[in-house]
Design a protein around this nucleic acid. Sequence first.
DNA 1: GAATGATCATAT
DNA 2: ATATGATCATTC
Length: 222
Amino acid sequence: MINAPQTQQELLQNANRLAGKTLVHLAQIMHEKPPQDLKKQKGWCGQFIERCLGADGGNLPQPDFSTLGIELKTLPISPHGLVQESTYVSVVNLKGALGQNWRESVVYQKLKQVLWVPIAHVKGQSLLESRIATPFFWSMDSTQERLLRQDWENVMDKVSMGEIHQISARMGEVLQVRPKAAHSRVITETINEDGESSQTLPRGFYLRSRFTQSLLDRALKR
DNA sequence: GAATGATCATAT
DNA sequence: ATATGATCATTC
């Protein structure tokens, strides 16, 4: 369960073995002690599942299973199968936006193939009591790609024009942009309307939950 | 309640 | 600071 999978099939088999288990149970199997305050360790669950499945991407801007080109994403759901949160994809490149190509973008590279691991959390219960639901593999179809690409290009057009202040989370049918930083005083370099270097809050691309919901619904039907 | 903007932990 | 993993919490 810890060695990096060599094939997609192997990864899917490993992932399916997680289904039905609670996070505490899994942690026991992995000989890991879960953190005390899961409210603060927001990313623990995702990184824990990465360890369970042998992801090797590290925190580099590339898919978690680099040789397979497959990204791993946990998906918080309610016991009824309702997606509870948006899904972080990658940071927005705020410099040198000009000439960036959709298919070469980190967003496309990471979303091209995703292993979704839904995790059912009962409201009021500890996150550790959450149960891994049935993982599912997704590769974007042409319709989904059109939507994602449109949203991505609209954002990158604004970035390349230096109009970052015009970007808000209200933009985007399926892919939105929101702050991505430790706090609101963090700054990163960008290019303003006059082509000069300036500073702004780092942003990230996020999938709207209604989009990931549609992926989950389709996976359950099949 | 959902959505947007803010934030927390960790590694490099 | 930049990237990963995300969810929190205030606003609407």
